[in-house]
Amino acid sequence: MDTASAPPRALRLRLRHLRDRLLVALCLVALALAVIPLVWVLWEVVGVGVRHVSWEFLTTLPQPPTVGGGGWANAIVGSVVVVGMAMVMGVPVGVATGIYMSEYGDNLLGKSARFLSEVLAGLPSIVAGIVAYGLIVVTMGRFSAVSGSAALALLFIPIVAITTQEALKMVPGHQREASFALGVSEAATTLRVVLPAAMGNVLTGVMIATARIAGETAPLLFTAFNSRYWMEGVDRPTATIPVNIYSYAISPFEHWHQQAWAGALVLLAMVLALNVAARTLWARRARFMAGD
């Protein structure tokens, strides 16, 4: 064989090595571009926020800017209630939709549900607010926490439906067959075999969706609206953390800007705490499923 026409073996190997390292380097640059802004945002929120979070901020009602002091206790409660109600509405509907799409959705209805979920998952959040405004606020004749929850649920459901579907599809078919072969019905197989096996990923979807809606501002502007007082009921307007951040941040008062940073930190901490709690509760079962 003529070896003179091809580059020597050693050179080819070195070239290949170089290309390999170049690709890894490019991936690292891309990673840095993605991670740096994230870390920076976290750094700012935690760094600035932590200076302005205080017991007073967490436990008292807002004060007029001229008075100074005061806190966001009503908004913190408001956010918990509004997001909590959105989850109560959204988890059953979203998970059930995901189950249908994955296990029974090999038909026109399933296809339509998948298409609609994907469209709705990309719904501009302010549109969800308008829908809830038109359907609930106008009908009830006033702003309310529950209308805010409905708007958030509209954003929450498609995300949970899609992630639940994906989670169930990842459960191997032989698990379903094992159950069918024991004379267990499809419904029981879905609920007792497939869903438990997928629960970790379903939970992840719920957490991602919760984090998403917990920070939504636009859908709440004309549904939950805002309030300077404690919430009087779910059929009344309420303050929430994101809307407060928005209105405090655009105010001319330095003191309010600081409170907006503190609010951002509290929101972040709440989402994180929920995530950690869910993961911890789940960890034991996950270990069991891994065979420990």
Binding site: P172, H174, Q175, E177, A178, S179, F180, A181, L182, G183, V193, P196, A197, M199, R285, F288, M289
Partner: peptide, 17 residues
Amino acid sequence: LRIRVGMVFQRPNPFPT
């Protein structure tokens, strides 16, 4: 029917949960 005609598969498939 499957209560009367059972099946064992190629790969062991116990329920992991």
